[in-house]
Write a protein that binds this DNA or RNA. Structure first.
Lengths: 293, 293
DNA sequence: GGGCACGATCAGATTACCTTATCGACATGA
DNA sequence: TCATGTCGATAAGGTAATCTGATCGTGCCC
């Protein structure tokens, strides 16, 4: 008979690839963990762990099972937190993930209001790229994430908060320059972008559509602030989310809107379907929308 | 600490609404089950079961938790069957659901081939309407279902098998009648349909689109065979899936194709994402396609 | 009010699980 | 080559979780 304990021990093995360390992680001794893993292998009729010299490895089955075990344990953990669902939204601990191209612009405005309206909320914030956020949310390391939608994860539920326009940031070109810009007009420009992995990079590339020739030259910076300094010094242009305009704008850079239909990205929240964070998400969306004003 | 045992006992309560019967279902004594439920309530910090005179009822929380518990237990059961995934596809027990508007036409052709090619397969077949199949699949009472796609269930994975054309079945109207029919031309006809709940009824209505006036008269029969007899006797027309044409056709009824684009429905398989039935599904699709050939 | 149905509680038995101690295989290095 | 260290498996015995069987208390029905 499979038990949650066995699944917990298996995931510890998956994380540490070491029986002793896994046992320590689970606050038990190594023989206890070894035996549970053996029981699990017997129940499943498959070898899950390859005991090799040096370090252990999961078999193909073991990897698959561990993956599912993570999901099951996350679902059970959500069950445990379900009691909280009966109480008020946005109270108690909440682990929130945010992507880097939103966090510096949204958080300074949203956090004060959030603390004011939900004093019982204990936020723990993590800022990293979408892919990592999604993984950590799925594994139960986060409760809620703020990212650009859609995420294409059927095990997540999502809620759109607002749309964020893309603006073109470039050196000022005098009053005779076009008031609105067509994406096709960017073909001849040198486009500056964030480094690989940032969803903002992919979104900007998608706005610029088929402009493959120049894209190989696309620069990779690690923060929007850096990119904007480069733009200010004439190294090229970039696409700036409107939300960042206030913070990143300067008199050395001109921000121009696209012609209709203006390209946007949808910013929203996501949480595990099995978690009881829907009420929290709806409450948070309200705060975010007000903060954006 | 929550255990799978507690979840199993809770689902038994949800099914029986009776501690004694639930205990029997779990092959334990009633005190054992009572205590586990109490432990679960303590862990969750919520009352799950209302002990009332006569019979017990689940609280709102209890209903929610039981729902999630079903899902978790199904995922664990899928884990247990994962061992089978390593072996050949379509071997061992498989609980297959099929909708009534496909079963009588597809099974007679598919089953012999299926048994010939997969002698190790032990099929248990259930025929009922889509909604029931979907519920039973989600609860883990079925392994795989054959239905019209899409199903709009993010926890299911699906695989399309083939498209099935709709034909118009009517009394013969002589050689001067149109060779192809436009859906709009059905407006003046009396449309005969299956009773409420059959997806074929909804699909046929959708094909006929905006023809609301006649639809309120839409007849409700319990089998396609009945409908076709009515058509043969001049009570109206119906939409017949091409798959059923061979069986249900007769010289008293004329089958006419629609004009392009011909309306079709997509028949396919669905299974729980968490189950390891993908290989089985792919193998089964091959057999179904050949059987239809 | 007696009998009954049903869930809660209690005491003792059973089972599952853990810990400590030890083994055996393998690698490393003097 | 042999001592040494690492790591997972195994063994023995103790502890905690869980079960069973008996009993209690409550509400219901006749």
């Amino acid at each position: 008979m499979i038990t949650l304990r066995q699944l917990r021990y298996l995931t510890a093995i998956a994380e540490t690839r070491h029986f002793g360390k896994a046992a320590k992680l689970c606050h038990v001794t190594q023989p206890a963990l070894s035996m549970q893993i053996q029981d699990l292998e017997t129940s499943l009729g498959t070898q899950l762990v390859e005991r090799r010299r040096g370090q252990v490895a999961l078999t193909q089955s073991g990897t698959d099972i561990a993956e599912k075990a993570f999901a099951i344990l996350a679902a059970v953990a959500d069950l445990e937190s379900h009691g909280r669902a009966g109480r008020a939204a946005l109270a108690g601990p909440l682990r929130l993930g945010i992507i880097p191209s939103i966090a510096p612009y949204l958080l300074p405005r949203a956090l004060p209001a959030l603390h004011r309206r939900y004093p019982a909320l204990t936020l723990r914030i993590r800022e990293t790229q979408t892919k990592a956020l999604v993984d950590e949310l799925a594994h139960g390391d986060l409760d809620l994430i703020v990212a650009a939608l859609p995420l294409d994860r059927p095990d997540f539920e999502t809620l759109a908060a607002f749309e964020d326009r893309f603006l073109v940031a470039r050196k000022p070109r005098g009053p005779d320059a076009a008031k609105r810009i067509d994406p096709a007009a960017l073909e001849s420009e040198h486009l500056l972008l964030l480094e690989e992995g940032h969803c903002l990079r992919d979104q900007a590339l998608s706005v610029c559509g088929t402009l493959s020739p120049n894209l190989s030259k696309a620069f990779g910076a690690s923060s929007l602030s850096t990119v904007m300094h480069l733009v200010a010094n004439g190294y090229g242009i970039t696409l700036l989310p409107e939300m960042a305009a206030e913070t990143e704008g300067s008199d050395k850079v001109e921000l121009v809107r696209f012609s209709e239909p203006e390209p946007v990205r949808t910013i929203g929240l996501a949480w595990r379907r099995s978690s009881a964070r829907g009420a929290d998400a709806r409450a948070l969306v309200d705060v975010l929308q007000e903060a954006r004003g």
